[in-house]
């Protein structure tokens, strides 16, 4: 799958920055490809007003979404972007990545927090939600905010904490893009989301990268039953 939209310019980041902030890797790039595939849906149908990326890292994903996928349409829609990270270093880096790529910072709200905790419930309702979580299988003690993702048992510890939050923060028409690997058991996650939260999941992109088999799963509300 070739990527036709240019990837964001990250030339302002040096290898020292990547000691502190997650360096974009195959998982990030597959997510960009998936968002690019979704561009017609996002621009023509969804026309999102509020987008949230949890775990911004270098800012590559939010920059791509705002700058390339939505581009000038985001200005027409008046789209607002919210990004969070546990890691305080990720947020200034994300701002720098936005600025480097010519994006206006008053449309970007950076918050250091766990998922989106502290955001007023009445002000929730995100049309696009993106999370490339720490999904790597590690020992449970290692789960935390290290730049290199650590996901504990089955790589699921952080993911499983986030799943119940998703239906509470997604707008009625909202969509959620989640990065997973085979060891996270994507089909099981799709079942949990359907049975417990009424969110339908489908795989929008997948790729083998080294030892990892990566998936991008898209979730949206099941409107057939309501």
């Amino acid at each position: 799958m070739a990527s036709y939209l240019p990837t964001p310019d990250l030339s302002h980041l040096k290898s020292a920055d990547y000691h502190n902030v997650y360096e974009p890797a195959e998982d990030s790039f597959l997510l960009l490809d998936a968002l690019e595939l979704e561009a017609p849906f996002l621009n023509d149908q969804l026309q999102p007003r509020w987008c949230l990326e949890v775990g911004a890292g270098s800012g590559i994903v939010s920059t791509f979404l705002a700058g390339q996928v939505l581009g000038s349409r985001a200005v027409d829609f008046g789209t607002c972007f919210v990004v969070t990270d546990l890691n305080p270093r990720a947020l200034p880096v994300t701002q720098a990545t936005w600025a480097r790529n010519g994006l206006a910072l008053h449309r970007l709200h950076c918050i250091q927090t766990d998922f989106i905790r502290g955001w007023r419930p009445a002000a929730q309702g995100f049309d696009v939600l993106v999370f490339n979580p720490p999904y790597v299988v590690t020992s449970p003690e290692e789960v935390g905010s290290q730049p290199r993702g650590r996901g504990g048992i089955d790589g699921r510890q952080v993911i499983d904490q986030f799943l119940p939050i998703v239906p509470t923060i997604l707008s009625d028409r909202g969509v959620f893009y989640l990065v997973l690997i085979e060891q996270n058991r994507p089909q099981e996650i799709i079942s949990i989301m359907r049975d417990q939260y009424g969110l339908l999941g489908s795989i929008v992109a997948q790729r083998k990268a080294g030892i990892e088999y990566l998936y991008i799963v898209k979730f949206s509300r099941d409107t057939s039953t309501t």
């Binding site: 027409d76 008046g78 008053h106 007023r120 002000a123």
Partner: peptide, 30 residues
């Protein structure tokens, strides 16, 4: 809510006006 600001340093940073964005915000603000 709302949290009370203390010891804040404020600055004005010029930003391009965008009616769609502003109306979008007005819908969400308390």
């Amino acid at each position: 809510f709302p949290l009370q600001f203390q010891e804040v340093e404020l600055e004005q940073i010029e930003a391009e006006e965008n009616e769609a964005l502003l109306l979008n915000l007005v819908g969400k603000i308390d």
